[in-house]
C-alpha cells in the first residue's frame, strides 16, 4: 500500500505504474481535480489543510478495510495539501485487482468514504470571497452529540 499526504504535485502516472503487478487484471484510478467553478461562481484556487497524523491513519485504515471488503490486491491513496489551482489533482486513489469489478467498487467506496471520514478540509477562494466547503455530514457512528 502507498498511503501519503504530500504538498507537491501528485504524479498519477508513476503511482499507478508502481502499483501494477503480474497478478493484476485491472487498475482503477480516481483522480480528483480542482474544478473552475462552484455553481457558476468562478474559483481561483483551493487551500487544503488536514489533521495530518489522524488523516494518514484514517487513510491507511480505509485502504486496509477496502482490501478486506472487496478482495482487491493493492491500493494507493495520496492526498495533496496546500494551495491547489484549477486542474490540479487533490487526491489520487488507485486500486489494483485481478478483476475490474472489484477494482471499480473499491475505488468508488474509497473516495466516497474518504470524503466523509478523513479529516481534511478545503477553503475555496472565489473572486469575491472565500468559503470553507461544507463536507457531507459525518456518519452517525462518528457523531454522537
Amino acid at each position: 500500500m502507498q498511503i501519503a499526504i504530500v504538498r507537491e504535485v501528485i504524479d498519477a502516472g508513476s503511482i499507478t505504474a508502481a502499483l501494477k503487478a503480474g497478478a493484476d487484471g485491472a487498475v482503477c484510478v480516481f483522480d480528483g481535480i480542482v474544478r473552475d467553478n462552484t455553481r457558476g461562481r468562478r474559483t481561483l484556487y483551493l487551500d487544503y489543510e488536514a489533521y495530518e497524523e489522524m488523516a494518514l491513519n484514517q487513510m491507511r485504515n480505509l485502504a486496509e478495510e477496502a482490501i478486506a471488503k472487496f478482495g482487491v490486491r493493492d491500493i494507493a491513496v495520496v492526498h495533496r495539501l496546500g494551495r491547489l489551482y484549477v486542474g490540479e489533482s487533490s487526491v489520487l486513489i488507485a486500486v489494483a485487482s485481478a478483476h475490474r469489478g472489484a477494482a471499480f467498487e473499491a475505488c468508488r467506496w474509497l473516495i466516497d468514504t474518504l470524503k466523509k471520514t478523513v479529516p481534511i478540509w478545503k477553503k475555496e477562494q472565489f473572486e469575491d470571497g472565500a468559503v470553507w466547503a461544507d463536507g457531507e455530514p459525518f456518519p452517525e457512528e462518528i457523531v454522537r452529540g
Binding site: 481535480i33 480542482v34 487544503y48 488536514a50 470524503k115 481534511i120 466547503a133 461544507d134 457531507e136
Partner: peptide, 13 residues
C-alpha cells in the same frame, strides 16, 4: 465536516 478530495456536488457552508 470534512471535505477532502475533489470538490463534490455538496452544499457549501
Amino acid at each position: 465536516p470534512v471535505s477532502g478530495g475533489a470538490p463534490g456536488n455538496v452544499p457549501w457552508k
